[in-house]
Amino acid sequence: MFYQSRLRSITLILALGFLAAYASFGSYFAREIVIEITILAILAISLDFCAGFGGMVSLCHGAIMGISAYAFTIMSVKLGLPSVPSAMIGLMAAVVFSGLVGWVTARTSGIFFIMATLAFGQMAYTFFFKSRWLGGDDGMGGIDRFDLSWLGVDMNDALVFALFGIAVLLLVYVIAAILLRSGFGRILSGIHSNENRMQAVGINTANHKAIAMAASGLMAGIAGILAAQHTLYISPELLIWTVSGEVLLVVILGGIGTLIGPVVGAIMLVMLKHELSNYTDYWHMIVGMVLIFAVLAGGRGIFGQIEYWLITRHPPKAPHLPPAKEKDLA
């Protein structure tokens, strides 16, 4: 069950502060890295929302992000709509797709849920990959960023865009935290803990899980709009299942079921990747080993493990330790 503890608030402020400082005082390249981190962090929050709190380990979050990016680009580039309504339609597409996936898969669990989401994600990937009208595997370009000139800033400036990304990340974190603290979010945690009992006290758990997937899709959709505006170009690569796998890796690395852990994980992974790629062409191997180690070490992740240490040393009035091992997934 989610609590915005003081430790989590401090970590959030430190993480966002670090990103803002890194973007402000760093080079153009550092600003690009910050954008990349914010996109991955938003996607990871979105996945933690459904996997860490709802037990739905999705392998189609890359696809949800991609669908939003494609819908946004179709509207703005192909049909010439202004960028804000296009973005709204992009988000709607993501919500509809993830809600549908959630509704269809609501009665499956464990490995079947993972496989089903993998299949739906790959279906979307293949669709865009084969679609000539949408550029096939070449993708589409010609995307414009939001026009914020009325605020006196130019979004094509890397620093402005990086700070915009950080603001959006904060917004998504707040949305997720509010949803998880609400009656809806509490009951989602209850379903994760014991779906059968939740039905016995009168909750239609299948509908509840589908709505949770749709909400998660909204957040993944936001990442998609940001991704499209970041590179100004989209391709089916966004939707491929290994992207979803990497997001899951970020969630595990930071700490599943902690909400702030995924932000920490995204910072670590992107930094690690860029540092490693300076030295070696084989950074995938190191990332893979880190992932294996993270799971073997108990699966709490970096933030999760630190939080666990602090809580077991100074137990608060209402302990809310994330479970060490997953449950209800088998």
């Binding site: 996997a51 380990v57 464990g110 490995i111 993972i114 796998g245 899951l248 890796l249 595990i252 062409d281 084989y282 995938h284 191997m285 990332v287 893979g288 080993m289 880190v290 992932l291 294996i292 799971v295 073997l296 699966g299 091992k325 997953e326 449950k327 997934l329 088998a330």
Partner: peptide, 28 residues
């Protein structure tokens, strides 16, 4: 052997990590 009781998510993660490791070993 030690991941057998760890549930499908952890198995998926560990073997996903293995894919990366083996991929780069082959490239090496």
């Amino acid at each position: 052997d030690r991941m057998r009781a760890a549930g499908p998510m952890n198995q998926v993660l560990v073997t996903f990590g293995l894919i990366f490791v083996i991929l780069d070993l082959v490239r090496l």
